[in-house]
Design a protein around this nucleic acid. Structure first.
Lengths: 218, 218
DNA sequence: AATTTCATGTAATTCGTTACATGATTCC
DNA sequence: GGAATCATGTAACGAATTACATGAAATT
């Protein structure tokens, strides 16, 4: 019954933390802002919202779209249900933000975790980035071993597929290296090679816990 | 009931087409040769094998590992179950190979389709590659539109995430361009118009001529 | 007036995993 | 003879989708 997906829950709480929204709008943001990696359908979203309300993390408000000036006064024409984060919900989200288990850097989770780095403390950001990197390096090692073993036996297409796959992983590792370097230097990654201008994240809560990164991933 | 996964079924038929195998070995090949993209567990594989046998596409043989010289004679010590492709199974696989619906170039399917390009006729290869490319270009267009709309409102991390995502897609498009170009140039004269006879797995398959002029890696 | 887009939801189904249960074979 | 790996399977669960069902609001 409990349609708690982990990642969907996390994303919903995170988006509602910024501002209240109704389901339809929430879904659009889910599939654009964060949606390069994942797409959710209503069949997932609405049940999830329901359970989050039951948990006490969200509150429902009959309402109109918040940027609709017309409907402020005389409308009892409820149709949209606007969800907002409760105090408990905020607490819950921050608890999730602080988690740095292996889950945080698996393929499915990493993207959405990164998307909310603006809300994440620096040491957690570091742990997640480094965890992700060592996860990928592990994977690279396996791929290299596998390619060494089977080099001769595979046809050109399979080989090309593996080569391209490895290159993709290597590319992500380089990306992570740049990000980690930026975090370390304390600058926000605005200078790395040649991307357009970026604004620093605004409300990043800086907790100065200099914990050594938990390197033993797996 | 029917644990037919589409992609798992396809991969199993394709691997067994090359040589008979038992489940355990099959799973390893699934997760190395093709496994950059997907990993399957026994809980998926064995039920799938069962239904493929029921369909008449696979046949079970009590057997030993085919490269174990000791056990050739006196062993009734069955433990492994070696699966081989039946005639119907071959037909089925070739039917699947020929399909060029939109399914063939979605994220999940494309990898495994590509892995068996060595068995695929040229025109189908072309359609799959071009289908994949236009799918990605579609996605790029959406991402660009979305970024144009929301540029100002997002924090640096979200933006960086989107930028990296877009770059990944662009990179895959360039890869596809090279592959399509190679296919176009490398017209092999020995191209069978419709399926029927396939080369033995040892015979040199056509080379995709990946031609990597950029060696940004290694 | 009709069509599109907005908006919310439920039921059945798909695709796959994890945890469990069992046992043979090989290596030390 | 004990551990690691090989080998096969099942039951319970998980996460998300698709298809369905409904209806209000905006646009043409």
């Amino acid at each position: 019954m409990s349609r708690r997906s982990g990642i969907l829950e996390f994303a919903v709480l995170g988006l509602l933390r910024e501002s209240p929204m109704h389901g339809y709008e929430l879904r659009k943001r889910l599939n654009t802002s964060l949606g390069v990696f994942r797409a959710f359908s209503y069949g997932s979203l609405y049940p999830c919202l329901k359970t989050l309300v039951q948990q006490g993390w969200l509150a429902e408000e009959p309402g109109r779209s918040p940027d609709d000036p017309r409907a402020t006064a005389l409308s009892n024409r409820r149709a949209k249900i606007v969800y907002r984060l409760t105090a408990d919900g905020k607490e819950r989200f921050e608890e999730l933000l602080g988690q740095t288990g292996p889950d945080a850097w698996e393929d499915e989770h990493f993207g959405v975790r990164f998307a909310f780095f603006g809300q994440t403390s620096r040491d957690v950001r570091m742990r997640v980035l480094e965890g992700r990197r060592s996860r990928l390096e592990e994977r690279l090692a396996k791929m290299r071993a596998s390619m060494a073993r089977t080099r001769e036996k595979l046809d050109a297409y399979t080989l090309e597929l593996q080569r391209h796959g490895m290159e993709s992983v290597e590319r992500e590792v380089r990306w992570l290296n740049e990000l980690i370097e930026s975090e370390r230097e304390g600058r926000d990654h605005r200078d790395p090679p040649h991307h357009g201008d970026q604004r620093p994240p605004d409300g990043a809560p800086e907790r100065p816990r200099p914990g050594p990164p938990d390197d033993t991933t797996t």
